[in-house]
Design a protein around this nucleic acid. Structure first.
Length: 241
DNA sequence: GCGACAG
DNA sequence: ATCTTGTCGC
């Protein structure tokens, strides 16, 4: 999978904010496709105190949710985690993983915000722009916006709008009965209704929809394998050293 | 000044 | 994100 030239490497936070403000207006916030047969999920993981990042991309078939392709990448972090600038930390390694994908997805789900972001361009939106693909933000917690807990039903499938200054920027979506909701927002080349629909259609009894859940599983798998090769015989050293 | 703050 | 034990529920 090929992406646009803009490189998120070696930028400083001030420059990053300018890039986001500039890219913001290029977002397309409408449904650009009627059917979605392949959905991808992407995620990044790392060890505490380490600057090695692991990324995974999993492509699933819709509506079966069967995995048809997986790809991963490992790299060194070049940017710290700063709320609002997550994409500059995770994009380089994510793009490396996306390069290996051969089954082009119709839409990509990211573990983070879409336009529900201080500058209207979270990781899902910016990655969608760079990859030139429809994208959805599905985060486990809120970064930006307001909503009322009382307006959200307890059953799976219910949702309530996430707003900012009266404008709807996303939705708080219950994916399981009586379980904390996820925060969904349009990324790029898609609308909120379709984003919510795809998130709900992608759930398999877990709080996290399959695309990002499977990507999370894979990224943790390769991270653990990476640890093993880095510290062989670690268990015995702990016992006798 | 104070609270909030994706992963 | 990661570090962690027990615990509540289907």
């Amino acid at each position: 999978m090929k992406y646009k030239n803009l490189h998120p490497w070696d930028v400083d936070p001030n420059q990053a904010i300018q890039i986001q403000k500039q890219l913001r207006d290029q977002l397309i916030l409408q449904k650009t496709q009627e059917t979605y047969r392949r959905i991808a999920g992407a995620d990044v993981s790392y060890d505490k105190g380490s600057d090695i990042l692991y990324a995974a991309v999993v492509v699933l078939e819709l509506p079966s949710l069967q995995i048809i392709e997986e790809a991963s990448a490992v790299g060194r972090s070049t940017f710290p985690y700063i709320p609002g600038l997550l994409v500059f930390r995770e994009a380089p390694i994510l793009l490396k993983a996306f390069e290996k994908i051969r089954q082009e997805p119709d839409v990509i789900m990211f573990d983070g915000q879409g336009i529900a972001h201080p500058r209207g361009i979270g990781i899902a939106s910016q990655m969608g722009l760079w990859l030139d693909k429809p994208s959805i933000g599905c985060a486990k917690s809120k970064l930006f916006g307001d909503y009322r807990e009382a307006d959200l039903g307890a059953k799976a499938g219910s949702y309530t709008p996430l707003t900012y200054r009266g404008k709807i920027i996303g939705a708080v979506v219950r994916t399981r009965d009586n379980v904390s909701p996820v925060f969904v927002s349009a990324g790029h080349k898609i609308d909120l209704a379709t984003s919510i629909e795809l998130v709900l259609k992608s759930c398999q009894g877990y709080r996290i929809p399959e695309p990002t859940r499977q990507a999370h599983n894979l990224v943790n798998k390769i991270r653990v394998e990476g640890d093993k090769s880095k510290a062989p015989g670690g268990t015995q050293m702990d016992l006798f050293g």
